[in-house]
Nucleic acid binder design. Structure first.
Lengths: 236, 236
DNA sequence: AAAGGAATATTGGTTGAACCAATGATTCAC
DNA sequence: GTGAATCATTGGTTCAACCAATATTCCTTT
């Protein structure tokens, strides 16, 4: 595990309001506070957390963005049903709380559908600028394979010409960062990735959508296995 | 257009910090401010917007959450590349700014892949509790078709047992709200929806994943056409 | 007694000024 | 030149007061 990964968590523990977010968020997602419940007032929260009201308010802004609470001027703070949220940060939070890696499996399941289709579109519509960008990344000797692989995916997302795929890919990569260091620690997988990059570039250049999709599917299935093996190991 | 839809926009214009978010967000997404650029300090922003620094800070919390800026204690505020964000709220913002409905088309393109697969999983794994919930919604006479249709989709998402599909469906429904009132204004489409609900429920009950997927695909393709026709009309 | 409206209390939204804490730049000693 | 101390800048937090929206209460009217 590279040093960077070790400290990935503790990086942003410098803000008081974030700790308050964590506490309240945990209580909502775990169900300790039910949807529809009214939270204490800002003033009361400030008092019980022993911080200033301003700080509480910054925390509330974040909870509001996560669609976990509803803030009604003149009325109060109401807990929303997080299953009605459309905010993907919630999944990040859930995966941090969830011990069994259930959330990760859910994410992988969706990725397996989304990313191959993204490759399909990239092969179908990728402009020459997109292709040369992809070539440049693959040829770059300075990047380690982990970083390179993520950039390759990003370039493919970009070539798909669909902003939703781009944002989604970034979302998937967020989780990748936690696992890929395990994957790229042996020569066999490194070679596998090199071949993947060659093949997918080739398929996109030759504008063969079906082929690009198949290549991507194969790679994801294999990588998925690796992640799941790791999860199983962690459990035991 | 029901009254509720008419006022959907203007509802939350009561917070000063939201207006500041809008202004800065616009400048970042439009490219007026480039990634890597340093924003003015909190104190300067407060002065130029003629508001208190506290208010600016609440706006910054939101921009931070949208992954549009990086806030570095002791250093300053830096603009990030929004194409590296993983926050779907950004797509909501983009669709508001974008005149041609390009963003909406991107969303529909992804939905067409995701939602049928979600139906597939619902048919494969839906528990009896999920099915009876779905039945109850479909039987409910009080709901208007627009509301009912969204709830049907939600129930299917729930039956898929995958939180990512649930959150995603909510995301899609967010945009649905803006368009579906146009779709459900004629008896032909209403009857179409009734049939859809019957059919998909049947496929899920009988645990026929492939069938559920096909039914969902058909419905989405048809609805997509309607939205695109509407967009074309708006343009002209 | 019920309905409607005005006064009041409660609660979130905003302000101003002061101070704490992290970072980068400057300066100084070696 | 290099490294450490110093300082200025910038975000983080606190305090105390007031503004504005909403809910409640109470009173008037019918």
């Amino acid at each position: 595990m590279p040093a960077a990964a070790l400290f990935a968590q503790s990086v942003t523990r410098s803000r008081l309001s974030e700790e308050i977010v964590d506490i309240i968020q945990r209580q909502i997602i775990s169900g300790d506070i039910a949807p529809g419940d009214k939270l204490p007032t800002e003033r009361e929260l400030a008092e019980s957390f022993k911080v200033n009201r301003t700080t509480v308010r910054e925390a509330l802004r974040k909870l509001e963005h996560l669609e976990l609470i509803d803030v009604r001027h003149g009325d109060g703070l109401y807990v929303k049903n997080y299953l009605e949220s459309s905010n993907f940060d919630l999944i990040k939070a859930a995966s941090r709380l969830d011990e069994d890696g259930e959330t990760i499996c859910d994410i992988l399941e969706v990725r397996r559908i989304i990313v191959p289709q993204m490759a399909y579109l990239a092969a179908q519509r990728g402009a020459s600028a997109d292709i040369s960008r992809l070539e440049k990344i693959i040829a770059d000797k300075r990047l380690d394979m982990c970083e390179k692989d993520m950039k390759v995916h990003e370039a493919i997302a970009h070539a798909s010409g669909n902003i939703v795929y781009i944002i989604m890919l970034n979302f998937f990569n967020h989780f990748n960062r936690e696992y890929s260091y395990l994957y790229f620690d042996n020569e066999r997988n490194l070679e596998r990735s090199r071949k993947f990059h060659r093949d997918i570039l080739d398929a996109i250049k030759r504008k063969k959508p079906e082929e690009a999709r198949r290549i991507m599917t194969d790679v994801l299935e294999y990588a998925e296995e690796a992640v799941k093996k790791d999860l199983a190991k962690k459990k035991s």
